[in-house]
């Protein structure tokens, strides 16, 4: 057999055969004794859950049909309600009623714009070299933290 790069290697075929034989002779690993009890406990827990708290696919057929019919009824009712509202209710009072509670949103937006303007003024007042310095320090600290985490993970977890 040639290697993936196409170079013939006389040692490769015997090695593949040897490893194949070694691995094929391995018996299955013995499962831990706790496996059976864990599985049966999980099954018991699942079966203790009432049907209406399990996933929809596991509901009884009648319950599924009833749920679908009820959902269709609610959708139809909601659509009828919207149609009735648009035809029967005069729009002007409705718009006024909806708009008045939304004035707080307008005020919040104005406040946010004030904060943006203030930030722009501060940034223009501070020398740009300071800003670059702060950004560089923050980036360095961030990278150092990631490197520290990676080193700790490799040392404490992977080396186990």
């Amino acid at each position: 057999m040639n290697d993936p790069l196409g170079t013939p290697d006389p040692n490769r075929e015997p090695l593949e055969r040897l490893i194949e034989q070694v691995l094929r002779e391995q018996p299955p690993r013995r499962a831990p004794r706790t496996l059976e009890s864990r599985v049966m406990a999980a099954i018991a827990r699942r079966e203790a859950v009432p049907w209406w708290r399990s996933s929809f696919l596991h509901w009884p057929l009648l319950a599924r049909v009833a749920f679908l019919l009820m959902s269709a009824g609610i959708v139809k009712l909601a659509l009828s309600g919207v149609v009735w509202l648009t035809q029967e209710v005069r729009p002007q009072p409705l718009i006024g009623a909806v708009a008045s509670p939304l004035t707080w949103a307008e005020r919040t937006t104005d406040s946010l714009w004030h904060i943006v303007d203030l930030s722009q003024a501060v940034l223009q007042a501070v020398p740009s070299s300071w800003i670059y310095g702060v950004v560089a320090v923050a980036a360095t600290l961030y990278i150092a933290l990631i490197a520290l985490g990676a080193t700790a993970y490799r040392t404490l977890y992977l080396s186990k």
């Binding site: 009890s37 864990r38 049966m40 406990a41 099954i43 018991a44 827990r45 079966e47």
Partner: peptide, 8 residues
């Protein structure tokens, strides 16, 4: 099936 769970 374990200390605190039994099959019905």
């Amino acid at each position: 099936v374990n200390d605190d769970t039994q099959v019905d």
